[in-house]
Simulated assay, not measured.
Amino acid sequence: MNKKEAPTIESVADLARPYLHASHFRIERELSGVSTYVYRIDTGKEVFYLRILPEQGMSFGVEVQVHHQLRQQGVQVPEVIGYENQHETLGMSIMLVREIPGSQAGQGMSNEGYEHTLREAGKQIALVHRVPVDGFGWIIRGADEYGTVLRAEKSVIDEYLNEFLEGDLGFLSEQILHETEASRIQTVLKNGASLMKRHESKLVHGDFDDSHIFQLNERYTGMIDFGEIQGSSPLYDLGHFKLHDGQHYTGYQALAGGYGEIHPLTAED
């Protein structure tokens, strides 16, 4: 899919000014954004983030819908204060959000504070998983998708998990994987799919780790970055977090404990 070039700071200032109601502000490009262009805007009193979707024909409409829906359910996600399906000058979809205060969970925190933050985040991601999705895989983000029901690209979970499996394993088996290893991977995914099928498709964050969980003074303040939203088993986000747990800090048990207060986890889960 064709991508447009990132707008200049001057262009961003022009399009942001009507939303901010401020004559003076500072803008800088956040290079951490992968799927979107991200700009940090500091007015001196508040901080905002402007996200710009570079793919032609794609829209933030569904993501805006998700933010509104989650905030109504008590999930602390960034407040959307500006959105355009397609900005007239840029020809790209834009979304302006208010900053979640604080910093990433784990940075300069005590173990007790980190675990408290992760327990609250577990409760919050459980609330995210209450949102139903029609299908599995990436949430469809076309310009006309804004509505009441979120739709994903695949109708069944097997299509979602196995879409590129045969080709990828074939490529890796040429020089990296032995035949027995490729066979074991297929078996693991088959068994995993049967477990995930026990849950209906729900909205998942898609990139859930402690870099997207924020805290201030060792208290949870919210979660960010719903650019990877998918329809999947709710176990997806818990599994994704556990995969990354311990790389910097260890918090999965606290996260799962908070999650279980909202959605009790079975032995099979």
Rank of each mutant, 00 (worst) to 15 (best):
I81M: 14
M95R: 02
Q69D: 15
Y83V: 05
E63D: 09
E79G: 05
R98Q: 14
I52E: 03
G106F: 09
E99D: 13
R98K: 13
V62E: 05
Q65T: 12
V77R: 06
V62S: 06
V66G: 10
R71H: 10
G91W: 05
G74L: 03
T89R: 15
E88F: 00
T89F: 11
G108H: 12
V62K: 02
H68Y: 12
I100H: 11
M58L: 12
S59Q: 06
Q73D: 11
Q56M: 04
T89K: 14
R71Q: 14
Q65C: 08
R71Y: 13
I81K: 09
R71D: 13
P101F: 01
P101K: 09
S103Q: 14
T89C: 13
Q107H: 03
Y83R: 04
R98G: 06
Q86I: 02
G108A: 03
Q86P: 01
Q73R: 11
I94K: 04
Q73L: 07
N85M: 04
V66Y: 07
Q107T: 03
Y83L: 05
E88W: 01
A105L: 13
Q107P: 00
Q69T: 13
V75Y: 14
G106T: 00
I81D: 15
E84P: 02
L70I: 10
Q104S: 14
G74W: 06
G108M: 05
V64M: 13
R98M: 10
Q69I: 12
L96A: 07
Q104C: 04
V62N: 07
I52D: 05
E55F: 09
A105Q: 00
Q65F: 06
I52R: 00
S103K: 15
Q73C: 10
M92V: 03
H87A: 10
L96Q: 05
E99H: 07
